[in-house]
Design a protein around this nucleic acid. Structure first.
Lengths: 214, 214, 214, 214
DNA sequence: GATGAATGAGTGTTCATTCAT
DNA sequence: TATGAATGAACACTCATTCAT
């Protein structure tokens, strides 16, 4: 659904799934180490355990690998998220919980997230929209959560504020990877999570309280 | 001060400054369009208005260009910042003003800023620290501002919260360029600025007010 | 045995052997004409009958070609030598025969020998020792021969004289290539061989003394 | 006389002489270290103490420098030779003395001699004959010496043997530099000289025969 | 006479991709 | 389906030489 089709010369769908899984796993590790441009298709083939010829049976171009990698990372993050939080509820506590879970997932997959964050720009003008769409879907998860919490009466935010807050939550999660060279020195993941939750929510939280009392 | 020396075969310092300026300008435009790796040194030379041989009179390697680009962008941002805000004061109003000015500068230099944050990772392990140092210097500007405002009694934040808030301010500025594909659709720069100021500060602001009133 | 491994991206050992043979042959001709430095890898590839990309499937660097050339020449000389002379005997006659055979081989391979003699110095500090070792192995062939002849009682030479004489034999062979611009004008190979054998073995001074006394 | 003219844009002959002397000195050192091809004209200019522009006031091309270097080395060797031996005499003792003096000169100028014999091949087809001519002049010195000694009745050699012996003497001098990686381990210069004089002049075969008969 | 900035053809090398087996 | 040898356009970088000042 909304996923871009990457054609393969091989017919067996099961095999495609399997081989591409091996490819992506190998590629993430290599991209992590050397970046997309400095990684060669030969290296990816070798690390995947098959020949360069076989690699090209399952993709059309090097860029396809990058797309598959990005796609796979988003799916991974989303899957882990769905495993741990119910998206049907709506309460301040639930928002806090969701943020914490999200930050945890980002931390677990920090290499992957960083790779995607840094290399997605190398996707062609054709493939990029598919990845950006995934990013929007991720944002939507938090938007929905916030909407429900607003509907519940626990938060007082207009539409645009919901959007921006959801955006900020996502960004603060990514920050933990792309500024880790600095943040890791100052905070543990737990401290970082707690402090960001405070900074993210106390504003809107107090305001709504204030709003209520006034 | 803390800047990495990039050696040149040319002796005339004035000329080096001039030619490197031309180079950086051309390179930013090309990097913006195609990224660092997809841009060739010949393209940079041509766009700079001189031959490939001349290009290499002023740098040692392609990476030097990227370093000069990053360095120049930081200097540009800092210079514009210093032009518009006094860094000696300390008040809520001043913090708001500084954020707005910073977001404005980022918006004016959005191409440059985008290029830097996307390509800096391609710097070698030798050059990267110099750029990260610049980033910390930028963060420190906001840390100082917040410290002074805390000292003034207008904010109530501990040391670690100051650090994180400064990080957040910087990152949200960058995000205006990084996620412009999404943000631009929703907000004007002014709206984005105003809303982020609210989200960033109302949390801590109300808390301190609450603290005061209690 | 003692040969330096030159890695190849190609797995088929037979093919490596074959392609490198073609490469070396082409390279010798080109080096002969223009020297190592003035010969381009593209020229070598073309003369070898394959593309530049293919060339680099079989070597890592241009210097590898030079090493293979040197190695191949030594092997060629040694092989031809072993084909024609038994190295187990030891007599004046056998020494003379061996010298004549060696000079013949040098003459047959004069282009190769000259190339090696002139270009080996361009080998890196890493590869040079392997080539010098081959040179010592060549010298050792004549040392052994002389030793056996001494043991047979047909010559009276101490260890150091054996070494130097073997060295001189080798040098006189190489001379035939690197001074051919002059020697060829004066002597045929047969004349040169006969005269050098005389000078090497008979001595000029004693002969004249003998001549006088007889 | 017989020297190739190397044109210069500068008129002042004294200055030409001086500058070229500086150039040659610098070039020999650089060629010694890195070889002719790996040495750049910029390096030569710098090591000579003037600019690249000035360098080209005194030569037309890089190859001119190589020619001047070769020429200068020959002149140096010849000069030192003439300083120490009279070329008018003719006797066995004198030949021995001349060989020893020549070997000494070669040893003193070993770097220069090595450079010349390794790099002369890079001279163009136009310049090479001039250098070969110098080499023949050197050979002629020993030919003459041998001729006079034959005429004196102290040696019994025909014309062709004289020529070849002269060649051999020259080559064995050169080999002291060329094969120093091997020879230096076995012999001091004095030992090498003494032994080569013996082998060149006394012969090994007759000696052993003599030994046997005595 | 001296300088050194400018030039650009040329070099070694890489690597995504193809295709015969 | 799987292989891996072959390809060649493209790349970063060099350096002998020129010429305006």
């Amino acid at each position: 659904m909304g996923r871009k089709e990457v054609p393969s010369l091989v017919k067996d769908e099961k095999l495609i799934e399997k081989r591409r899984g091996e490819m992506v796993k190998a590629a993430v590790n290599l991209f992590k180490e050397n970046g997309f441009h400095r990684t060669t298709t030969r290296e990816i083939a070798k690390a995947s355990g098959f020949s360069i010829g076989t690699l090209y049976e399952y993709i059309r171009s090097k860029e396809d690998i990058l797309y598959l990698v990005c796609d796979s990372i988003y799916e991974g993050v989303k899957e882990k998220l769905h495993e741990q939080i119910s998206l049907a509820e709506g309460s301040i506590e639930h928002v806090k919980k969701a943020i914490a879970v999200y930050f945890n997932v980002v931390d677990e997959m920090q290499d992957e997230v960083l790779v995607m964050y840094q290399e997605a720009k190398s996707l062609s003008r054709e493939a990029l929209p598919y990845v950006l769409k995934k990013e929007l879907e991720m944002t939507a998860i938090f938007e929905d959560l916030l909407h429900r919490t607003v509907a519940q009466g626990e938060l007082e935010l207009n539409e645009e504020e919901v959007k921006l807050l959801a955006h900020n939550i996502l960004v603060h999660g990514q920050m933990w990877t792309f500024r880790r060279w600095s943040l890791r020195k100052e905070y543990t993941l737990e401290e970082y999570t707690q402090m960001q939750i405070n900074l993210l929510l106390y504003g809107v939280l107090n305001r709504s309280l204030t709003g209520k009392t006034s």
